[in-house]
Nucleic acid binder design. Structure first.
Lengths: 308, 308
DNA sequence: GCTGTCCACAGGAATCTCCTATAGATCGGT
DNA sequence: ACCGATCTATAGGAGATTCCTGTGGACAGC
């Protein structure tokens, strides 16, 4: 089968006009080039050079071959550059899995960080839900992610980065007494997010378990998809809701006006962790993993400081 | 160094989603494909597939590589086709050497023959003079040619195809007596062609030798470059000239009106031969050589018939 | 004619390629 | 929770291929 090496030898011969000169240019011995060209001629079933006297004269076939040989070599060189540029994070796509509400913790800032360091890359932050993201990790469709624990998979490297606390959110200061118990939750008019994921969502399951221990089911009055809508509804006084302190912290002044919050007792925590498969991480993922770890840990410290 | 084989294996793996399937498609054993891809990854210093479970997942680098790998393989395939199309005489240039006045013997008809059989090819008929063409043959710049003998080169295959006779041409019937001798030539007002090539042209040298044996030099009154101009001048009665019967035969009704001719005594002959280097002839040259040989031999027979 | 240069060829060492066989890992189904 | 099917990784060895050195022959220029 035709080989690049043969084409290289051919082009060098064509350019330098002799096997000897081509060999010199390519750093081989003359018979090696001679042999490669002979092989090429054999495989193409044609004569590329007429051997006349002590010189070579390219045939019409050689002239026909030249541009295509060059094109093939150029394509291969270009291939190398393309791969290198992905490897060096100059181009390509950086894909990273996130839990659904991650946008309140880091989204825009994280993307800004990545883009600033690697202006040519595309960034994809994918994920609707921690369980779904974990499945993507297992199947290899994602290399790394930040999701809520637990992650029961011994092949995954799990690095906890932030512990967050669930809080009760209401527009009515009267309902924000010091300690909200599961019984209070069972009695409250609640709006909860993650309508589609309520079966697998870890927060929802924690909440349901705690309430069920009081003998009542967790039956939210309203269910919506996203956290911001739930908060909006709570702000209008239509229902109360629960959310993570980190979300409130992240929203800060974008939080709908009039909302207050109170801790749950017993407290309910969720731990977020950076997760990836064992083994080498690609440089792209490494970058994002490090950035996310740093940001989330910073957030963790900031939030603990406000508590303590 | 990156090889086409590696790229082939890579693309097959990408397309079929596994080494095993790629091996099946390419007709190799699985470890062979695996090894080639591993080598490629090593040479590109990147991971092309994440080995996850019993499957493979292409990385961003793989996606970056794919189009260039395809391009390289396409270029090589195209190279093969280009060479084949030259080999099969579908495209390319057919180059053939001719003596200067060959156009009177075959030019247009020969080109028509070649183009009819091989509509895609370009045709080049090159040559100002037999000696110059022979030099091109020696240097390998031409593969084959039809030129005037003698050819003193033992490496050339010489196939005589036509013997032509020099005749005296004049517009004055009085000067066309049966036998024109060298002495007549020495005395005549002559217009001769091949001004630039008079030193090497075989016809001119033959003529010069014959005239010199009479004790006079050959001193044409007029010298021009091409035969047609010489005949034109002769037709106007400004001078007489000599030319080959084949030229008159070839010009036929395009011969300037009023010209007649007479044989020389002793007769002077020129033999034209198809000449090429020893060894394989390219298919393109083979075709032209055969066509020229057939046409010239046919012409030879026709002219001998008119004499006899 | 002599010398330097270039191609072709031969023989052998090193490398590469590709195979078979097998081990290890995983997934799906029972 | 186990089993069989499936896929990758690895080892080892046979066979090609590559590339070298050395040499012979042909040609060009002095």
């Amino acid at each position: 089968m035709l080989s690049l090496h043969q084409l290289r030898c051919f082009l060098a011969t064509l350019e330098h006009g002799s096997f000897t000169a081509a060999a010199g240019a390519l750093g081989y011995a003359q018979p090696s080039i001679s042999e490669q060209v002979r092989l090429l001629e054999q495989q193409l079933d044609t004569t590329l050079f007429r051997r006349v006297g002590r010189g070579l004269v390219p045939t019409e076939a050689a002239r026909a071959l030249q541009p295509h040989a060059s094109a093939a070599l150029a394509a291969v060189a270009e291939a190398g550059r393309a791969v290198a540029s992905v490897r060096e994070l100059l181009t390509g796509t950086v894909r990273f899995g996130v839990f659904r509400t991650a946008r309140f913790y880091l989204a825009a800032d994280l993307v800004a960080d990545v883009l600033q360091r690697h202006p040519g890359v595309r960034v994809e932050l994918v994920g609707q839900n921690s369980a779904e993201v974990l499945e993507h990790l297992r199947k290899g469709r994602l290399e790394a992610a930040v999701i809520a624990l637990p992650v029961e998979d011994e092949n995954m490297v799990v690095t906890p980065v932030l512990r967050d606390e669930l809080v009760y959110v209401s527009a009515d200061p009267a309902r924000l007494h010091a300690r909200i118990t599961p019984a209070d939750l069972a009695a409250a008019q609640l709006v909860l997010p993650d309508a589609s994921w309520r079966e697998t969502d870890t927060t929802r399951r924690q909440l349901a378990q705690a309430v069920q221990r009081t003998g009542h089911p967790l039956r939210p009055r309203i269910e919506v998809e996203d956290t911001e809508t739930a908060l909006e509804i709570a702000a209008r006084g239509l229902a109360d809701t629960v959310t993570w302190r980190g979300v409130l912290h992240g929203l800060a002044d974008r939080l709908p006006a009039g909302l207050g919050w109170a801790p749950l007792r017993p407290a309910m925590y969720e731990t977020f962790a950076v997760v990836h498969r064992e083994g080498e991480l690609s440089p792209a993922s490494r970058v994002v993993v490090d950035l996310v770890t740093a940001r989330m840990r910073g957030l963790d410290r900031a939030m603990r400081a406000r508590t303590g």
